[in-house]
Design a protein around this nucleic acid. Structure first.
Lengths: 141, 141
DNA sequence: AAAGATCCTTGATGTAGTCAAGGGTCGAGG
DNA sequence: CCTCGACCCTTGACTACATCAAGGATCTTT
C-alpha cells in the first residue's frame, strides 16, 4: 500500500513533468512559426504539404472537421502559400504549395528542428536514450 | 560533413517524434477533461485552483491576457464551479472553487494522471530513465 | 438511369485569444 | 489631505479555430 501510493505519486509527478515539457515544446513551436507570420494550425498544415494533399487527407491527419480545412486553406491561399489544384477525381481538390509556399516550408522545417529549445538542452547521449522512450510512448493507436 | 548532416537528420526525426508524443498527450488530456464537460483551457484553470488565486496570477501562469481570464472565469462561474471572492486589496478578486468545483478538480487530478496513455505505455524502468531527461529539457526559464 | 456515397463549401454558432480603453482601488509624494 | 501613477479587472471589438448541419457537385454501384 505504501508502495502503491508511492508509485501513484511518482506517476503524478512524472505526468506533471511531461505536461510542462509539452507546454514548452508548443511554446517553442508557436514562437518559431510566428516569426514566419503563421499560427500553429497554419504551420502544421504547411508542414504536411511536402506533397500535394487532398483536403480530406489533411482533415484526417489533423483530426479536424473537413470544413475547417476549407478555412485554413483559404487563409494560406490569400497569402499565396498554397493553391487548390483539381484532381482526376473532380470531387477532390489537392492543396499544393506555391513556389512561395515551398520556400516557406523549407524554412519552417529547418527552424522548427533547430528552434526546439527543449531538444537543444539534451546531450547526444541523452537524445539517444530518449528516442526509444518516445517510440514506446507511441506504440499502437 | 556526412557526420553533421546525419546528426541534423537525427535531430529532425527526434523532433518529429517528440511532436507526435506532444500531440498524443494533448489528445489524451482533451478526452479526459471532455468527459467532465470541460475544454482544455477551462480544465487547466480548474487544476490551477488548489488554492484560491488572484485572476492576475492565473493570467501569468497560463500566459494569456488578463481579459481572457475574465471570460474563462465567467464560463466556470455560470456552471457553479468557481466564484469570485473579494480580497483584502479590493482591486483583486480571488477565483475560488465552490464545493462542486472541488469535487470536479479532485476527479480531474486523478483521471489526468491515470488517463495519460502516453505514460501508461512505459515500464517502471523506462519511467525512471525518462524523468531526468524531462527535467533536463526544462532547465532554466 | 437512379440511388447512395464521397468531397468540398457555406452559414451558424461557440470558445479562445488579443488589444485598447476605462473604471475602481491602492500607495506615495507633494 | 489629495493628486498622480500604478495596478487589477472588465468591456467591446476583432480574429482564429473548431464544430455541426445542410447542400451542391461528382463518382460508384446497382
Amino acid at each position: 500500500m505504501t508502495t502503491k501510493s508511492l508509485r501513484l505519486d511518482e506517476a503524478h509527478q512524472l505526468t506533471r513533468l511531461l505536461f510542462r515539457v509539452v507546454d514548452r515544446a508548443q511554446e517553442d513551436f508557436r514562437e518559431v512559426v510566428a516569426e514566419e507570420g503563421l499560427t500553429p494550425p497554419l504551420a502544421r498544415m504547411v508542414l504536411m504539404l511536402e506533397q500535394p494533399q487532398p483536403m480530406r487527407e489533411l482533415a484526417d491527419h489533423l483530426r479536424c472537421d473537413a470544413s475547417n480545412i476549407t478555412g485554413l486553406t483559404d487563409r494560406l491561399a490569400t497569402r499565396d502559400f498554397v493553391e487548390r489544384v483539381p484532381s482526376e477525381d473532380r470531387r477532390i481538390k489537392l492543396v499544393t504549395l506555391t513556389d512561395r509556399g515551398r520556400l516557406l516550408r523549407s524554412g519552417l522545417v529547418a527552424r522548427v528542428a533547430e528552434g526546439s529549445t527543449v531538444m537543444r538542452r539534451l546531450s547526444d547521449d541523452q537524445r539517444a536514450t530518449l528516442r526509444p522512450l518516445l517510440e514506446a510512448m507511441l506504440i499502437d493507436g
